[in-house]
Every structure is written in structure tokens, then in C-alpha cells.
């Protein structure tokens, strides 16, 4: 094995060892969006909708409780 081939083999080995790590870094994620802090916009919007719907559910719950009370008094 001459010197050139040794170089190529070691280079290939290096690439093979490194490639999983390199590939993982290549996977596109929303890194820019996160670094700009815009992900918090999404979090805020979803939390507001969730809180709104759940509050509505609580009010409905209370309404039904009141209705149950009224019916029980009628008896």
C-alpha cells in the first residue's frame, strides 16, 4: 500500500466515523426561528387559545352545576 492509498483509506475511515454526527447536524430544524425568539410567538398564541377554550369549558361546567342545583330544589 503506497502512501497515497493510506491517505485515502484513513480519510474514508474518518468520514465514516464522523458521518452520523455530521448527518445529525445537517437535519433541518427551526433553529433560526428559535434563535430569533419567534418560537415564543407560537407558544403565546397556542397558550392563549388553550386558556380561552378551557375558561369557556369552566364556565359551561358552572352553568351545568347551577342547572343541577335548580332541578334538585324543584324536587
Amino acid at each position: 500500500m503506497n502512501w497515497n492509498m493510506k491517505k485515502i483509506v484513513s480519510l474514508l475511515c474518518g468520514v465514516m466515523l464522523l458521518s452520523p454526527a455530521l448527518l445529525a447536524q445537517d437535519v433541518q430544524m427551526a433553529d433560526t426561528l428559535r434563535s430569533e425568539g419567534k418560537i415564543y410567538v407560537l407558544v403565546a398564541i397556542i397558550v392563549v387559545i388553550l386558556v380561552g377554550l378551557i375558561t369557556f369549558l369552566f364556565f359551561t361546567d358552572r352553568k351545568i352545576s347551577r342547572l343541577e342545583k335548580q332541578i334538585n330544589q324543584k324536587k
Binding site: I39, V43, I46, V47, L50, V51, I54
Partner: peptide, 10 residues
Amino acid sequence: LLYTAVAGLL
């Protein structure tokens, strides 16, 4: 559910 929304995104 609130934890899911926040932690799920962050």
C-alpha cells in the same frame, strides 16, 4: 395541557 403546549414547542 398548558405544559404540553409550552414544553412541546420549546
